[in-house]
Every structure is written in C-alpha cells, then in structure tokens.
Simulated assay, not measured.
Amino acid sequence: MKWTIPNTLTALRLLAAPGVAIMFLYFNRPWADWFALILFVSAAVTDWFDGYLARLWKQESKFGAMLDPIADKAMVIIALLVVTGFSGMDPWILLPATVILFREIFIAGLREFLGDNAGTLKATKIAKYKTTAQMIALAVLFARGIFEHHLEIRIQGMNDEMIAAIFEGLVPDEVGLLWLYDGIQYSWYSGVALLWLAAALTLISGLDYFQKSLPYLKDEA
C-alpha cells in the first residue's frame, strides 16, 4: 500500500466522519454547527477529488477502492445520527434516515456474504447520485442548525411583543431576524426534500444490487 495523495484524502475523509459528531461535544452551538458543516463539506469535496486524482495520475489502488466506500458510508451515517438527534427525532428526518441506514447495512451484509462474487455489486450511477444527494441534503440540514441558533442568540433579551412586532413589520428588523427565519425555513424544507430524494435513490440502488445478487443466492439443486 502506498500513501498517495488520493489515498491520503480518502483516509482524511474517514477520520473526518467521527469529527462531525465530536464538534458537538467540544463546542457550543452555533459554533459546533459551523465547524461540523465546514468539516462535512470539506470531506465531501474530497470524495470527488480523490477519485479524480487517482484516475488522472493513474494511482488507483485496492486500498483506495476498499477505503473509499467505507469513508462515504461513515460520513453519511454519523452525520445522519447527528442531524436526526438534533431534529428531535422528527419523523420527516427519521423515516428517510431509517431507509438509508437499512439499505447500507443490508448491502454491506450482502457484499460480505457474496465474498469473491461481490464484484457484481460495483457502484452504479444511481449509487453515485444517491451519495451526492445524501451529502448535499445533510449539508443543508447542518446549515439549518446554524440559522436556528443564530436566531436564538439574536432574540435574547427581546420580549414576545417585540419579536412579534418585528415579524409583522411594525418595528425595523435591525438585527436580521427575518432573513435568519427565512434561512431556517428554506434550509429545512429543501434539506428534507433532498433527504427524501436521497432515500428514494438509496432504495432504488439497493434493489438494483439485490437483483444482481439473486443468481448467487439460489441453492444448488
């Protein structure tokens, strides 16, 4: 195994996965949300760069091929746990998250069972699209936490009447409550929509892999 730049990027992405959760242990919100978002987006970008550089420089390796999907799944699963937890187990987040987690565990078990025949379950375009959709959805939902907690900070010291007057346009919005509230709404609805899209693509790709594995699951006559 050689520590090429593509392999190093993949390894760093794997290490970044638990780092997303650790941010919330050592920092207060919204700083934890900011650091988690920056770390998650930076790691997600390397998912494209490591494969591109490996092909460009002809540095594709078995180690990279093995580690890349593990890093992707670790990133998505840990980020899903964090987002689900901080959403208060909201069903709109919990249900697609459950679909995604179930599929990842099922396909991982299927690959292990197939052993030498696991090569039949190579990544498809749909699988790549679902990974992209998952990462974008999670990044948007992390952004919602940032808007939410900055809003909470700015309304500190205000009474309900003052807040209501700002939202009704009776008092100038000098602290930016309106755009923060809009940010919460847009990031929530777009993030949830993207997560459901990711769950649908995840389910479709999982069914595709299962169909391809059927010939190897039949008992010998």
Score class of each variant (00 low, 15 high):
1 M>H: 07
1 M>C: 05
1 M>I: 11
3 W>H: 11
4 T>R: 09
11 A>V: 04
12 L>F: 00
13 R>D: 03
14 L>K: 01
14 L>W: 00
15 L>M: 10
16 A>R: 04
17 A>G: 04
20 V>T: 12
21 A>T: 12
23 M>L: 10
25 L>D: 13
27 F>A: 06
27 F>R: 12
30 P>I: 02
32 A>L: 05
33 D>M: 08
34 W>V: 15
36 A>L: 06
39 L>H: 04
40 F>N: 02
42 S>E: 01
43 A>D: 07
45 V>N: 05
46 T>H: 01
47 D>M: 05
48 W>P: 08
52 Y>P: 00
55 R>K: 10
58 K>V: 08
59 Q>N: 03
61 S>Q: 06
63 F>Y: 12
64 G>S: 03
65 A>Y: 11
66 M>P: 02
68 D>P: 07
69 P>Q: 02
69 P>E: 06
72 D>V: 04
72 D>R: 00
74 A>M: 13
74 A>W: 02
75 M>H: 03
75 M>C: 13
77 I>H: 02
78 I>G: 01
79 A>Q: 07
80 L>S: 05
87 S>W: 13
88 G>H: 06
90 D>H: 10
91 P>E: 04
92 W>M: 02
94 L>I: 03
94 L>W: 13
97 A>V: 09
97 A>K: 07
99 V>P: 05
99 V>T: 09
99 V>L: 12
102 F>W: 09
104 E>W: 03
105 I>R: 01
106 F>G: 00
106 F>H: 07
108 A>T: 14
110 L>Q: 12
111 R>C: 10
113 F>Y: 15
114 L>Q: 07
116 D>C: 06
117 N>L: 09
117 N>Y: 13
120 T>W: 09
121 L>A: 06
123 A>I: 08
123 A>K: 02
124 T>Q: 14
126 I>N: 13
128 K>E: 15
128 K>M: 12
130 K>W: 12
132 T>D: 09
133 A>H: 06
134 Q>L: 11
134 Q>E: 15
134 Q>M: 09
137 A>D: 07
139 A>S: 15
139 A>E: 08
141 L>K: 14
144 R>N: 11
147 F>Y: 15
148 E>Y: 14
149 H>C: 03
149 H>W: 08
149 H>Q: 08
151 L>G: 12
151 L>E: 02
151 L>H: 14
153 I>F: 11
153 I>W: 05
159 N>W: 02
160 D>R: 07
160 D>F: 05
162 M>S: 10
163 I>Q: 09
164 A>P: 00
164 A>K: 15
164 A>V: 02
165 A>Q: 13
165 A>M: 10
166 I>L: 09
166 I>Q: 07
166 I>K: 13
167 F>I: 12
168 E>D: 14
168 E>Y: 14
169 G>M: 11
170 L>T: 10
174 E>N: 06
174 E>F: 03
174 E>H: 07
175 V>K: 13
177 L>Y: 10
178 L>P: 03
182 D>K: 15
185 Q>E: 04
185 Q>G: 15
186 Y>R: 13
186 Y>P: 01
189 Y>E: 00
189 Y>H: 11
190 S>C: 05
191 G>T: 04
195 L>D: 04
198 A>P: 05
198 A>W: 01
199 A>H: 07
201 L>C: 06
203 L>T: 09
207 L>M: 15
208 D>T: 08
209 Y>P: 01
215 P>H: 12
216 Y>F: 15
217 L>P: 10
221 A>G: 11
